[in-house]
């Protein structure tokens, strides 16, 4: 068990170090989120939006950026030719756990940046900050769980890059519905925690099921 944690941590640490060295993904996603939010803010203009539309726009931007940013997590290993090294030194589930942890923190950071920018730019009032934060964390977990597995899948295809959104969007519909509803409850006109219990359960269940399914299926993708 301790070996497993150390192995997964080593994969995670490697990804963090590589990312901090180049900062390619971080900068790209940061700019993508900011540019997309600017587009949304300018196309909306001074119009007052309902909380439902506000949360829908926010999460659509987040889902698109996550699908764009996480697509590289396994493709980069193929391109650098480091897949064989990982295969030799670690087991498949360690690689999955390390990548999942990295992607989770990545999406969490992305969500925080997106939400703060969105709230400031559109002048949104938040009535339940704790609910919004919980939604962001659980949403990031489900999003990272689904995209990590699919990133491993597209690294095996011939075209690699642009396939990820096509594969991931149909799966994310339950997640998207739950996070949008929960976010709406955290904005004015919502009822806060009292009305979001069902959505929280859905988010926990979604993340749990997606991650368990990934653990079962990952080896079939990872080993040739």
């Amino acid at each position: 068990m301790i070996r497993w944690i150390l192995g997964a941590w080593a994969v995670f640490e490697k990804d963090v170090k590589l990312e901090l060295r180049s900062r390619y993904a971080i900068n790209m996603i940061l700019l993508f989120v900011l540019a997309a939010l600017f587009l949304v803010a300018f196309s909306v203009g001074q119009e007052a939006l309902t909380p439902r539309i506000e949360s829908a726009l926010l999460w659509i931007v987040i889902v698109f950026s996550a699908a764009l940013g996480l697509g590289r997590s396994f493709v980069s290993e193929e391109e650098r030719g480091t897949v064989l090294l990982l295969l030799l030194h670690t087991r498949g589930d360690m690689v999955y756990a390390g990548k999942l942890l990295f992607n989770f923190l990545f999406v969490l950071g992305l969500n925080l940046v997106a939400v703060v920018t969105f709230v400031v730019m559109l002048g949104i009032e938040v009535i339940s900050v704790s609910l919004l934060l919980t939604t962001i964390v659980l949403g990031a977990l489900g999003l990272a769980g689904a995209t990590t597995m699919l990133a491993a899948i597209i690294a095996r295809t011939a075209t690699r890059g642009p396939l990820l959104p096509v594969l991931v969007f149909p799966m994310l519909i339950p997640l998207l519905l739950a996070v949008v509803t929960a976010t709406r409850e955290a904005l004015p006109g919502g009822e806060g925690w009292a009305a979001a219990g069902n959505e929280m359960l859905t988010l926990i269940g979604f993340a749990g099921v997606v991650i368990s399914a990934s653990i079962v299926l990952f080896d079939y993708v990872w080993y040739d």
């Binding site: 997640l175 959505e199 399914a213």
Partner: peptide, 15 residues
């Protein structure tokens, strides 16, 4: 992919 995507569909029943 077939199996992985399928496990998320039952959530729609709930949400």
């Amino acid at each position: 992919y077939n199996l992985f995507a399928l496990v998320t569909v039952p959530f729609l029943l709930f949400i």
